[in-house]
């Protein structure tokens, strides 16, 4: 009789432990869910700095460029490398030179008339910055330029 009672108590304890474990697991999952919510809130609040964003003050980036040539500069911040190209028709364009795939440097290939990321063969349209080939998921952020008598100025980022 006593053994029977002890046996039943032991079974109850085991059952209770199993239930507690399941409930704890549910609580743990709820905490993970809250963490994912907090992570998304952090993204939405802008805690992660987006490359190319920031203050967009005017900055002189080059004196003059010949058609077909490129020049590099940092804009809008000192850690935001950018590339400018004067096209054959005389117009001038500039983009962030950080590939939107894995942040390699984008290069101007004059012979092919395109911007190319050599790391994974990403190719961007030099007129629009749109992805033409390769793995980059987004176009290059465009930088607005203005030509003035004393040189070429970057005046803002077009997203």
């Amino acid at each position: 009789m006593r053994d029977d009672h002890a046996h039943r108590r032991l079974l109850d304890r085991i059952r209770e432990d199993r239930l507690v474990t399941r409930r704890d697991y549910l609580r743990l999952l709820a905490t993970v869910s809250g963490g994912l919510l907090a992570g998304t809130a952090a993204v939405a609040s802008g805690i992660f700095r987006r490359r190319g964003s920031g203050t967009t003050t005017e900055k002189k980036v080059a004196d003059s460029v010949e058609p077909g040539d490129s020049f590099t500069f940092d804009y809008p911040g000192e850690d935001d490398p950018a590339i400018g190209v004067r096209l054959a028709d005389g117009s001038i364009v500039a983009y962030s030179s950080v590939c939107t795939h894995l942040a390699c440097a984008v290069l101007w290939i004059k012979e092919k008339n395109e911007l190319e990321c050599p790391c994974h063969d990403g190719i961007f349209n030099v007129r629009t910055g749109e992805v033409e080939a390769g793995p980059p998921p987004r176009p290059l952020p465009r930088i607005a330029l203005e030509e003035r008598p004393d040189g070429i100025y970057a005046v803002g980022v077009i997203e």
């Binding site: 999952l29 993970v32 869910s33 994912l36 992570g39 987006r50 939107t100 952020p141």
Partner: peptide, 19 residues
């Protein structure tokens, strides 16, 4: 639901980087 939330977090980060 948590798997969907993981997807949503990566999609949100991608959307943020894509402005």
């Amino acid at each position: 639901i948590i798997v969907c939330q993981l997807w949503a977090l990566t999609a949100a980060l991608d959307a943020w980087l894509g402005a």
